[in-house]
């Protein structure tokens, strides 16, 4: 069974004449070890999809399951537990607390009630593994964008989630730092996690197993039936990843 399963998601913003349906029956399945990149123009509902998958927002219709647990309709307490146990978030603007060092930001996720007992140790290990030890005690304001995002990724992985949701993870980075972050995310998926990456960055699609686009509120494959490139694709690349 897919780690992430969404069916018929509907989400509308505004009311009356100003109402805008950004998701209109979107379906999605993401398997263990798979990275799904979601492309789309601004305002097409990419981030909204991520919020619904992560239980940060509630759909008007449709269902979401993560790691076999129902997200839609769950209580706030249940959603908190679900996010703690199964979900990790990576954001475009990192969202590191400015008064905490990089490592303390990572360990923040380990300090919430109900966090895994080994979370703190795992957090410290992640800091080492991601090559962040030399700057572990540095405040975010003194870190580069790439370093900040690596700390954010470490924070997302502290509770060993099955699913990582990344919202424009390279959107605020230069090409070099973006590539490093994408390499890391690929590694995260290769450890058996499911990743959904929402992005504008064509380079991000390079690490994806599948690329989907949001068109009229629905997710559609960006490759044709034979796996050939569509007009969205960068030259000479096949979206479907080699087995």
């Amino acid at each position: 069974m897919a780690l992430v399963q969404a069916r018929g998601l509907v989400r509308t913003f505004g009311a009356g004449r100003a109402a805008r349906r950004v998701l209109d029956g979107a379906d999605l399945d993401v398997e263990r070890g798979e990275i799904v990149a979601v492309l789309g123009r601004s305002g097409t509902g990419k981030s909204t999809l991520l919020h619904l998958l992560g239980g940060l927002d509630r759909p008007e219709a449709g269902t979401v399951q993560v790691a076999g647990e129902q997200v839609t309709g769950a209580s706030e307490r249940r959603l908190s537990a679900l996010r703690r146990r199964h979900l990790g978030f990576v954001f475009q603007f990192f969202h590191l607390l400015p008064e905490l060092s990089g490592e303390a930001n990572v360990l923040l996720a380990a300090s919430v009630r109900g966090a895994h007992p080994d979370a703190a140790a795992r957090g410290r290990a992640l800091v080492d593994r991601l090559g962040l030890r030399p700057v572990a005690g540095t405040l975010p304001a003194q870190l580069s964008g790439g370093e900040q995002q690596r700390f954010a990724i470490a924070r997302a992985l502290v509770n060993d989630p099955a699913v990582v949701l990344a919202d424009e993870p390279t959107g605020n980075l230069d090409a070099e730092a973006g590539a490093e972050v994408l390499r890391l995310l690929r590694g995260v998926a290769d450890e058996g996690r499911a990743l959904v990456v929402v992005t504008h960055d064509p380079a991000a699609t390079a690490i994806a197993d599948r690329v989907l686009s949001l068109v009229d509120g629905r997710l559609v494959a960006d490759a044709d039936a034979e796996g050939r490139l569509t007009s969205h694709a960068p030259e000479g690349r096949l979206w479907a990843r080699d087995p």
Binding site: L56, S80, A81, R83, R84, H95, R113, G114
Partner: peptide, 19 residues
């Protein structure tokens, strides 16, 4: 509120926010 929201996104429940 951003920090509180981040904590909640990390799985902090109401008791953690209360702490």
């Amino acid at each position: 509120r951003g920090a509180v929201a981040l904590l909640r996104a990390c799985g902090a429940d109401s008791a953690s926010v209360a702490r």
